[in-house]
């Protein structure tokens, strides 16, 4: 296999990166970890004339938070940096667990959170858990920056609201009032398999009553899918096993998975039912995010 030709730039800072991107627009692609971009270029799904590498923008790797403040994850933080971050392990374990389980070690060392989001594929593992935690993202261009709720970012497969001249620079996870969250994925082998179904949930429990719940499904639609009917099943209710099963059924019903070589629509729907119930159960039991 080989990579089609392109011109390569590795700008020294963000403003130069934005300037280059403005100059080349849709003819350029941003290179972060490369695990997905180079893969697609080898298949000529993408044939950018220009590659703008973010390798020199080390500030975008940072993961930080002030007590009581939002959590900031730089777009270039790798999946392993997220999985191994003590800050995340302590306060947002569901995010670090999702990063750990999404790919094998080699890929986790290269793949970035920004890439996993911007790539916009239905099986992406990080967007669902970030969405249930109310994450926003920062998009920067020569025009300035804007912040977009991640839930509103996706439009379809490889389609998002990002403009050709914008770079995703960070993910903002707000301080949580939720009591538990988790992401459960299902792949066809224990490693090196895309999720054929995934469910992220975040709940706020008050005793046995579920005060709020957010459920987002992976690989269930062209974009991460908010399972609102499933949420409605449990919000304000006393949680029972039967109720969780009903929520699972609701999530399965509102999901729209496609059939592929990895699984039929019918199978994926049923997986969503099971995973939703299991994820809710786990998040409710947990005493951390």
């Amino acid at each position: 296999m080989y990579l089609p030709d392109f011109d390569y730039y590795a700008p020294p800072d963000l403003s130069e990166a934005c300037r280059l991107l403005r100059e080349f627009g849709s003819r350029a692609k941003i290179l972060a970890g490369g695990t997905d971009l180079l893969h697609k270029m080898k298949h000529e799904e993408f044939t950018p004339e220009v590659i703008i590498s973010l390798k020199n923008l080390s500030a975008l790797r940072e993961i930080r938070s002030e007590p009581g403040q939002d959590l900031l994850i730089g777009a270039l933080a790798t999946q392993n940096e997220i999985a191994n971050s003590s800050l995340l392990q302590e306060k947002y374990r569901s995010i670090s667990e999702a990063a750990w389980n999404m790919a094998n070690n080699q890929i986790r060392h290269m793949g970035t959170i920004g890439g996993n989001i911007v790539n916009a594929v239905p099986s992406a593992d990080l967007p669902p858990i970030l969405i249930v935690l109310g994450a926003r993202i920062t998009l920067v261009s020569t025009e300035g920056e804007r912040t977009v709720p991640l839930e509103e970012f996706f439009l379809g497969v490889h389609k998002t609201v990002i403009r050709d001249d914008e770079i995703l620079t960070q993910v903002i996870v707000p301080a949580q009032t939720t009591t538990g969250s988790t992401y459960i994925r299902f792949g066809l082998r224990k490693s090196g398999a895309l999720a054929i179904a995934g469910v992220a949930v975040a709940v706020t429990m008050e005793g046995e009553i579920c005060r709020s719940a957010r459920i987002v499904l992976a690989a269930a639609a062209p974009l991460p899918l908010r399972a609102r009917q499933a949420e409605q099943v449990i919000v304000g209710q006393r949680v029972t096993p039967g109720l969780l099963e009903q929520a699972g059924l609701a999530a399965a019903q509102e999901s729209r998975p496609r059939s592929s070589i990895r699984g039929s629509t019918e199978y994926r729907r049923d997986l969503i039912r099971v995973l939703t119930r299991r994820a809710l159960h786990k998040a409710i039991q947990k005493e951390h995010i």
Partner: peptide, 27 residues
């Protein structure tokens, strides 16, 4: 495999294992 699926091309970059088939030399 040249697609990051098999790990045959694993090298360490700064001590971390990566698939060298998914890394540009310039990077």
């Amino acid at each position: 495999c040249e697609l990051g699926d098999c790990g045959s091309c694993t090298v360490l970059i700064d001590g971390k294992p990566v698939n060298s088939c998914l890394v540009l030399a310039v990077e």
